[in-house]
Design a protein around this nucleic acid. Structure first.
Length: 595
RNA sequence: GGGGUGGUAGCUCAGUUGGUUAGAGCGUCUGCCUGUCACGCAGAAGGUCGCGAGUUCGAGUCUCGUCCAUCCCGCCA
């Protein structure tokens, strides 16, 4: 039996036709005589009627059906009797009066409900074990469809602009700086290993040297780090690199890409250009380099004012080169003791010694520290923070970046608490895109007492800062940019270094990587640059996160067909799993039992 | 590596101060039912309370350990 229609197709325009449908039994309503089956395929649902008075055999076999069985039916498309139309179905005015029933497969009872509401409540491990059932749920099917359509929007966009999709190796060589890698033993070279590519970064730069000019790829990447709701061990990036482009060119290009995606998928017109925020300003105002600008609660700087304060904790931080920051959590004075404690813990986890606060209730400032403040200081706080009854003010006094980060975290926690109370609305359908720019090229790593690349070592410095590279590398800004949406980093990239001498200088003089290590790890790249490397830059977007945002879910597992659990296991296939002794021998691998 | 939450019927959950035979809804099964659409009605079956120790006359409940899921910190150039 061949399908003539799909299950969202038949309408009153098809009355009298003979139609053949195939799909899964969504639900069965057996009235003892007449039996209704909702037949479901990828497109939708059509009601099929089995009447034993018309055909006793078909009726009897229909009575044996179970939900999720796969069947094919043929019958006449008839109008439903008056009063039995189902307005919730596009096909609700008609039904198929079945004359034949082919049972392809009777299904066992599903271990969990497959409707959207029921399935959402089920433990995720069960859904992952039976992923093929989970993916039958309308919501999950829609996730796969949106993912596909987003891929298509991206490919169409770049194709129209003359980009070409080039695949790069997944089996790459190990580059130990950065994320931990998955190693792949070589059978042919005993004791040597490949690494699964963390990103095509170096290959795409080489492609620029190769004259490709405009490259993109939906690139699979692998990182052996702990998993999170928004991090899987393997994930997909929209990976792009362009020759002869500057930062402004990049901004326009990717504003266009995101505009097309949001239009194609959500029919939303994103306003462009996106606002730009310097790293410094993002930290000062929001305490993070990926601010959620859908709500206020901005940080206010009081470093100057507290330099000569009687309150020694603030004064010493301010005078010692650090910063004193404050945040007015408007209307949160009613927070509970346990909420306050958990805020303090959050602050401590970021290196704060405590979390100073002022609660404003009944016109009175309730705070263990208020007695140290002069009248002038109180007046300035009131004015600059707009303090009113019912507010609570939080302070952080620490080195600048740490003070910002502490209050940045407190800001987000307070926003969540205010939202819970209905005092703050953060609209889910508001899309606050922005570019964060002017990151420091280098960050001093306290642990190793060395400078490390903030982004990666191929990022070009801002030209006018190059003279500072030797003496004050921390002051050099990089030509790096992040795309931030509603507090989430969804993409990042940079204009790259294309002069071999400068790249070598960054490796050896700034990052202090020994010459032989530079040669073994990056020698091929430096050599390539000596043969006419064009100026170039690029970006990579976290594709899974992007699709999750488009679907309004916070977990990228929902938009990946077969994701791993937080313990990096595939519950359906039961991987990872042991291998045979012969396999290990072939690979020159011996395992040791964990202690 | 660390912290939080959870694990009781196929699923989602309740289970009081440690005390009789561990309950509910949905699902499943059986019977009835010819216009339902989450059909309805009647009945039944279904439990290693994640696993292992311990305390106790007695543990779903308390203690310790452990496993799994999830959220977060560390980590993710």
């Amino acid at each position: 039996m061949k399908r003539t229609h799909h299950c969202a197709q038949l309408t009153t325009a098809d009355l009298g036709k003979t139609a053949s449908l195939a799909g899964w039994v969504d639900s069965i309503r057996d009235h003892g005589g007449i039996i209704f089956v909702d037949l479901r395929d990828r497109q939708g649902i059509t009601q099929v009627k089995f009447d034993p008075q018309d055909d006793a055999d078909v009726g009897a076999r229909a009575a044996q059906l179970k939900p999720e069985s796969v069947i094919g039916v043929t019958g006449r498309v008839v109008r439903r009797p008056e009063g039995t139309v189902n307005p919730n179905l596009p096909t609700g005015e008609v039904e198929v009066d079945a004359t034949t029933l082919e049972i392809h497969n009777l299904s066992e009872t599903s271990p969990f409900p497959l409707d959207d509401e029921g399935g959402d409540r089920v433990n995720e491990d069960l859904r992952l074990t039976y992923r093929y059932l989970d993916l039958r749920r309308p919501k999950m099917r829609r996730n796969l469809e949106v993912r596909h359509r987003t891929t298509k929007a991206v490919r169409d966009y770049f194709d129209a602009l003359g980009f070409i999709d080039v695949e790069t190796p997944i089996l790459f060589k190990s580059t130990p700086e950065g994320a931990r890698e998955y190693l792949v033993p070589s059978r042919i070279h005993p004791g040597e290993f490949y690494a699964l590519s963390q990103s095509p970064q170096q290959f795409k730069q080489i492609l620029m040297v190769a004259g490709v000019e405009r490259y993109y790829q939906m690139a699979r990447c692998f990182r052996d780090e702990d998993l999170r709701a928004d991090r899987q061990m393997e994930f997909t990036q929209i990976d792009v690199e362009v020759s002869f482009i500057d930062r402004e060119g990049i901004y326009t290009l990717f504003e266009g890409m995101l505009k097309k995606i949001w239009k194609d998928i959500l029919d939303v017109d994103l306003p462009v250009p996106f606002p730009r925020l310097a790293f410094q300003e993002a930290m000062n105002r929001f305490g993070v380099d990926k601010p959620d600008t859908r709500f206020g609660l901005e940080l206010v700087d009081f470093t100057e004012m507290f330099k000569k304060s009687a309150f020694k904790v603030f004064a010493s931080a301010a005078a010692g080169g650090g910063a004193v920051k404050a945040l007015n959590a408007r209307g949160l004075a009613d927070l509970t003791q346990s909420e306050l404690t958990s805020l303090e813990e959050a602050a401590r986890s970021l290196g704060a010694k405590g979390l100073a606060f002022i609660k404003v209730e009944g016109g009175e400032w309730k705070s263990p520290i208020v007695k140290f403040f002069s009248d002038a200081e109180k007046a300035a706080l009131t004015q600059r923070l707009g303090i009113a009854d019912g507010d609570i003010i939080f302070f952080a006094a620490a080195p600048w970046e740490k003070a910002c980060a502490i209050l940045g975290r407190i800001r987000l926690e307070c926003a969540a608490l205010l939202q819970k109370r209905g005092k703050l609305a953060i609209p889910a359908n508001q899309w606050n895109f922005l570019w964060v720019v002017d990151f420091p090229l280098m960050t001093f790593d306290e642990e190793t007492k060395r400078f490390v690349a903030t982004h990666h070592p191929f990022t070009a410095p801002v030209p006018e800062d190059i003279p500072l590279l030797d003496a004050e590398p921390q002051k050099v800004r990089g030509q790096h940019y992040d795309v931030v949406l509603n507090g989430m980093e969804i993409g990042g990239g940079s204009i790259r270094i294309h002069q071999p001498a400068l790249q070598e200088k960054v490796f050896k003089d700034v990052l202090k990587i020994p010459a032989d290590v530079v040669e073994s790890r990056f020698g091929y790249l430096l050599r390539a640059f000596k043969y006419g490397a064009p100026p170039h830059g690029g970006i990579a977007f976290g594709f899974d996160r992007l699709v999750a945002l488009l679907r309004g879910t916070t977990s990228i597992r929902d938009v990946i067909a077969f994701p791993k659990t937080q313990k990096a296991q595939d519950l359906m296939t039961q991987s990872p799993a042991p291998v045979t002794a012969k396999q290990l021998r072939d690979l020159h691998i011996q395992t040791v039992q964990p202690a």
